[in-house]
Amino acid sequence: MKKEALEPRKAFHQQLDDLYYELLRMMVKTLDILEETRKAFKRLDVAKASEVINHDDVIDFYRSHIEEEGIELLARQAPVASDLRLIVVIMRMAQHLERVADLCVNICKAIKNLEGIEISTWIQEGIETMFEHSKKMLTLTMEAFMRMNLDLVDNLNQMDEKIDHINRSFFTAFDKDSSKELDLIIRVVMISRFIERIADHAVDMGEHLRFLVTGHAE
């Protein structure tokens, strides 16, 4: 088309771009929080866990800001087609990220209760692997969203199964080894469950991305 230099809705598309970058920033911030949570668990670092808990309002702020801007664009600009899908997906993604950050807070609260307790290596390793996997899933989702590339989120389901598997293994392992302290068992199972939920959010975000790119809701 010859006359594309003339873009009638430039101002609106600028606002949409801003919203998109705001979500990318929120994604980076959420990944940071997940990484801090991983470190806090690895070292059973109560101070770091408290830091994560106290920083949660940053993510809440991102979420409410993105939601407000999104609603305003929907109300005032009547977006259609890929613009419409982008706004809806950005708002959904922000909600998932907020939940991911909340789960990190839950994990950190559990970590605070583990202070001074010795954790066996196999538990350490299992949880560490779950952290690594869920981080990888979130990172892939973010990269896919930045490049609008669906190939990157193709394997999310498989990765999620690995996490589910480790999560389930904790239950059976504790069955055999019931001499462990009940308190420890409960905390670890909770933490494992929280990470498993984080991975589920990554899978959901991958699906939203698919809708954004293809226009088909699964």
Binding site: K3, E4, E7, P8, V80, A81, L84, R85
Partner: peptide, 20 residues
């Protein structure tokens, strides 16, 4: 369909105001 997921890129560009 046209306003949520048009099939042709020219429709998409027109209705989203990327040319006119």
């Amino acid at each position: 369909k046209i306003f949520t997921n048009p099939s042709d890129y020219r429709t998409e560009r027109y209705i989203t105001g990327r040319f006119g």
